[in-house]
């Protein structure tokens, strides 16, 4: 029951973030969206992911967005009625709606063949993960399987990811740092 309630709240958050004209409010609603998503992750027993989502998605992303808004504009440009009724603007809006509905229909069609929610026989749960679950303690001696897979079995992935963060930091420095006057 609570799952369905949380899912309804999250859908409402997404819709509000879409229609908000004030970008600061939209950013805060995005933070709420992330935080409720973290709650849903906890309900689905993904505690590590929920922790990360709460600290990264709800915390840092909101802070960065607000920092960016402080250097750009807070409000979306308010188009006048004439501009909004222009055929080209209307056409692009309808086209994007059609595109979204078609994509959604294709995805729903694909979902019909998916295994049921929580099915232990699903292919996702059959392939590599039983080995991780059974061997983790013997191989590494630690209890948190997520950390074991992250740091030990899939250490290369995490190394690549650290490199991605490092690259992002470097890119931001290159884009925004002002040169000192010589």
């Amino acid at each position: 029951m609570i799952d369905i309630l949380l899912l309804l709240i999250i859908v409402a958050c997404a819709i509000f973030a879409l229609f908000m004209k004030d970008l600061l409010s939209a950013t805060i609603i995005l933070g709420v969206y992330s935080f409720i998503m973290a709650t849903i992750f906890t309900r689905l027993n993904a505690v590590d992911v929920a922790f990360t989502e709460a600290s990264v998605g709800a915390g840092i992303t909101s802070v960065l967005m607000i920092a960016a808004l402080s250097r750009t504009k807070r409000y979306e440009y308010h188009y006048t009625k004439g501009q909004r009724k222009k055929p080209s603007a209307l056409f692009s809006k309808i086209m994007s709606l059609v595109l979204v509905i078609v994509t959604g229909a294709v995805l729903v069609y694909g979902t019909l063949d998916m295994p049921e929610f929580g099915d232990p026989e699903a292919p996702t749960n059959q392939h590599v993960s039983p080995r991780y679950i059974e061997e983790t303690h013997h191989d590494t001696g630690i209890n948190n399987m997520v950390t074991a897979v992250l740091a030990s079995y899939r250490g290369y992935d995490t190394l690549g990811e650290t490199t991605v963060i490092f690259t992002a930091g470097t890119a931001v420095i290159l884009l925004l740092r002002r040169k000192k006057k010589v």
Partner: peptide, 26 residues
């Protein structure tokens, strides 16, 4: 136990998503 592998993949994806957001904002 729940399947730990998707958790690991998503842990990685969350941090990558904040990196892409930061670069986009810059």
């Amino acid at each position: 136990y729940d399947n730990p592998l998707p958790h690991v993949l998503i842990l990685t994806a969350i941090v990558v998503s904040v990196s892409t957001t930061a670069v986009a904002l810059a």
